[in-house]
């Protein structure tokens, strides 16, 4: 037996009590703070679910066209979404889609500023990198427990768990992208008297954009990987179908929902990638 240096039972009790205290002290405040996101999510979800399906398809088509300017892709992406509807999962698909959009939006809101701050301070970077590693490797069930305690069951804890899991690559790639900006180009902007804001908006962010787009792409992929887990704490949608498939041993149900998730993944991946690629083609024509 390994000698028990730290009394495990006591430690666990301490952590539990600490979280309990936090929940009773700040739970209400957090609920209020998160309310706008609930509203946004509900609004988006209702919008997508009540919108006639063909408008959604046309919308996806338009988005694909603006990002890629390739007509094959512009036809393929709505077709992919149409496939989800065709196998009878339209409603669940829209629920998952809105969850994804909010989670990705929140990740961008958190991830890009964090990445920018990290790129400016080597000290902060040293602190942040291990934290990001923990966020990515810690089994997501572990932080599902406190998240559920804070926010209860439903969409919000699902989104927060998703963001915790999905945001690290975006932070990393934003930081990396800014650090990789050609030193001479940055020097040039300084030499012309650009202040910190002008350097960031005019040079650093635009030049880091391919990396940031890659980060957003990664984030959406990781967020999709979370949908089944999110459904366990009450997020409705495609994940729930898969979960039901497992519970009832219905392979067909699980497979179809799984395919629909894959279809959504391809949709997100192609559209975000196309954004990044088209910019690069402009700057570096073959």
């Amino acid at each position: 037996m390994f000698p028990e240096l730290i009394p495990a039972r006591k430690l666990r009790k301490m952590i539990d009590a600490g979280i309990d205290n936090l929940v009773s002290a700040y739970g209400d405040m957090l609920d209020k703070a998160i309310q706008p996101f609930i509203d946004l999510l509900v609004w988006l979800e209702q919008g997508l679910r009540h919108c006639p399906w063909w408008i959604v398809l046309v919308g996806v088509g338009l988005l694909t066209w603006t990002s890629s300017r390739r007509w094959q892709l512009t036809l393929a992406m709505p077709a992919l979404l149409g496939f989800i509807g065709a196998i009878g999962l339209w409603d669940q698909g829209m629920q998952t889609l809105s969850l994804m959009i909010v989670a990705t939006g929140l990740s961008i809101l958190v991830g890009i500023p964090t990445g920018i701050v990290m790129s400016r301070s080597s000290w902060l970077r040293k602190v942040a990198l291990p934290i990001l590693d923990i966020m990515q490797t810690m089994p997501s069930f572990v932080y599902l427990i406190p998240v559920v305690m804070f926010f209860g069951l439903g969409k919000i804890p699902a989104i927060i768990a998703t963001v915790i899991y999905a945001v690290p690559p975006l932070i990393r790639l934003t930081d990396l992208g800014i650090r990789l900006v050609d030193k001479e180009v940055l020097e040039a902007s300084q030499a012309f008297g650009a202040n910190a804001r002008q350097q960031l908006l005019g040079v650093q962010l635009p030049l880091a954009m391919p990396n940031i787009m890659a980060g957003i792409n990664q984030t959406t992929m990781m967020a999709l990987a979370m949908v089944v887990i999110a459904s366990m704490i009450g997020a409705k949608g495609l994940g729930q179908e898969v979960l039901m498939g497992i519970n009832r041993l219905e392979v067909g149900r699980g497979l179809l929902a799984g395919l629909a998730i894959v279809a959504l993944a391809i949709l997100f991946d192609r559209i975000t990638q196309a954004f990044g690629q088209r910019r690069q083609q402009q700057e570096h024509p073959a």
Binding site: D182, S189, G202, P206, L207, M209, Q282
Partner: peptide, 13 residues
């Protein structure tokens, strides 16, 4: 004062 750079330092975008 302004400056001209060895590898040009132009904004690629």
């Amino acid at each position: 004062v302004s400056m001209v750079f060895q590898r040009f330092g132009l904004l690629p975008h």
